[in-house]
């Protein structure tokens, strides 16, 4: 009898642990920071994919600054004061513009403060955006495809033989 109830508790315990892992994975998969839900369901697939707008048309600082630059609301309105103004999503955009509020986009690629990552250098070195950001043109909602971990950075730096690419101070300055 004692043995039987002991086995039962073991089973209950194992079930708990397995479901804990399942619960964690569900959170990780569905409510992930890799593919965050954005305030406006902006589709890169439509813009960069179907309409083939070049990345740098909106992300204007890639070659000039460490930040690629999230487009200003004015830039969105530059087209959307004419194009597809009836769509509910564009109406949402227009309401931001009219209330003079910037759109609080959620970061997909978030590096900690102690990492110095300049877009400028990477773009000027001739790297394709896809190399780190994946095939954005096919993403409806943007997903982070790279881990952005240090190993991932170093791997690429080593493979390409980047000058001082393995030096601590190159990225932690």
């Amino acid at each position: 009898m004692i043995l039987k109830s002991f086995a039962l508790y073991i089973i209950i315990g194992i079930t708990g642990i397995i479901t804990f892992i399942i619960g964690y994975s569900i959170n990780d998969y569905y409510s992930t920071d890799r593919t965050p839900v954005q305030p406006i369901e902006f589709s890169h697939q439509i813009h960069a994919g179907t309409n083939e707008i070049p990345c740098k048309y909106c992300h204007i600082y890639t070659e000039r600054s460490r930040h690629a630059g999230v487009p200003s609301v004015q830039r969105c309105m530059g087209c959307h004061s004419i194009i597809k103004t009836e769509s509910p999503l564009i109406e949402k955009l227009t309401s931001y513009w009219e209330t003079k509020e910037p759109i609080p986009w959620v970061k997909v690629h978030n590096l900690p403060d102690y990492v110095y990552f300049p877009h400028k250098r990477h773009i000027r070195a001739g790297l394709d955006c896809k190399l780190c950001h994946g095939d954005i043109a096919s993403m409806d909602r943007v997903t982070r495809v790279s881990s952005l971990q240090m190993g991932w950075c170093l791997n690429c730096h080593t493979q390409r033989g980047v000058k001082n690419g393995r030096d601590c101070w190159t990225c932690h300055q």
Binding site: T15, G16, I17, I18, T19, F20, I21, I22, G23, Y24, S25, I26, N27, D28, S31, D33, P36, V70, P71, S72, V73, Q74, W97, K100, E101, P102, I103, P104, W105, V106, K107, N110
Partner: peptide, 24 residues
């Protein structure tokens, strides 16, 4: 278990940061 797992996963994540663009 699954509830705790979900919550643990949530608590373990860095808070989402926002990317506020310029209006103009």
């Amino acid at each position: 278990g699954s509830g705790l797992g979900y919550l643990f996963g949530k608590a373990n994540k860095p808070p989402t940061s926002e990317l506020i663009p310029y209006l103009i």
